[in-house]
């Protein structure tokens, strides 16, 4: 077994351990994914809820604010991520003090993912039966109660689906961020595997990213099944 690995993936073995090896890269990818998922998740959730609540047929309609927020979300979402990485460099430096390395990648990852997730949250919450919302209003519920106990509770399976989708696309973005200096498996695949012609490294980096995606997808699907009645 050891022999086969040594002969098929020689460079992977050499590059396995240590901070600059695969172990470090996996850690960096997980770090970028989950820290930015946490912040983008909170930010996107808040934005998504606001978009639903202040829409024309929402529980607290505010047409002008909605118009602005809607446009901003669309605008940020339309910037190609590679360009976003470069464009917000100064802002990134201001926030985390560096523009390279996994921590430097966090800011662009969050800015790039939050609007995407906000849109997903919006779509998920719009699935909540308007009749149920009307019933809640007829019961004299406050807007907070409706947001928390109706929108979030009834929309939870859809929210988990959106979260899974966003997390997977975020993993893709970490690879891109990695390639331009963020570290992680993306950096491994490009800077080590591709540029040094070590194809086995690129291949294994890809497999590891796929494994991560499958785990996230599997957990998401399992959770949705648990939540649906």
């Amino acid at each position: 077994m050891q022999k086969i690995i040594n002969s098929w993936f020689p460079n992977v073995v050499v590059n396995w351990s240590g901070d600059n090896g695969f172990v470090g890269a996996i850690y960096q990818t997980l770090y970028m994914t989950f820290v930015s998922a946490l912040f983008a998740g909170i930010l996107g959730l808040i934005l998504g809820i606001i978009l639903v609540v202040i829409a024309d047929d929402g529980i607290l309609p505010h047409p002008r604010f909605y118009y602005c927020l809607d446009k901003i979300v669309n605008l940020v979402r339309s910037i190609p991520f590679v360009i976003l990485l470069a464009v917000i460099g100064p802002f990134t430096k201001l926030i985390v003090g560096q523009t390279i390395g996994p921590t430097g990648a966090l800011v662009p990852l969050i800015v790039g993912t939050a609007p995407f997730f906000a849109r997903q949250v919006q779509l998920a919450l719009l699935e909540v039966d308007p009749g149920v919302l009307e019933a809640a209003q007829a019961m004299g519920m406050t807007s907070w109660q409706i947001i928390y106990h109706v929108y979030l509770k009834e929309g939870l399976p859809e929210l988990v689906r959106s979260g899974t989708l966003t997390l997977i696309s975020l993993i893709g973005l970490t690879a891109m961020a990695g390639a331009v200096g963020g570290g992680g498996l993306g950096n491994m695949a490009i800077a080590v595997g591709y540029q040094r012609f070590q194809n086995d490294v690129t291949f294994v980096a890809m497999i590891l990213i796929l494994v991560l995606v499958f785990i996230v997808q599997g957990l998401g699907d399992w959770l949705i099944r648990r939540l649906k009645h």
Binding site: G131, E134, E154
Partner: peptide, 16 residues
Amino acid sequence: RKKIGMIFQHFNLMEA
């Protein structure tokens, strides 16, 4: 509103 109950054609119950 708490003193005015309402029921609907499609029941509007919470599935979760």
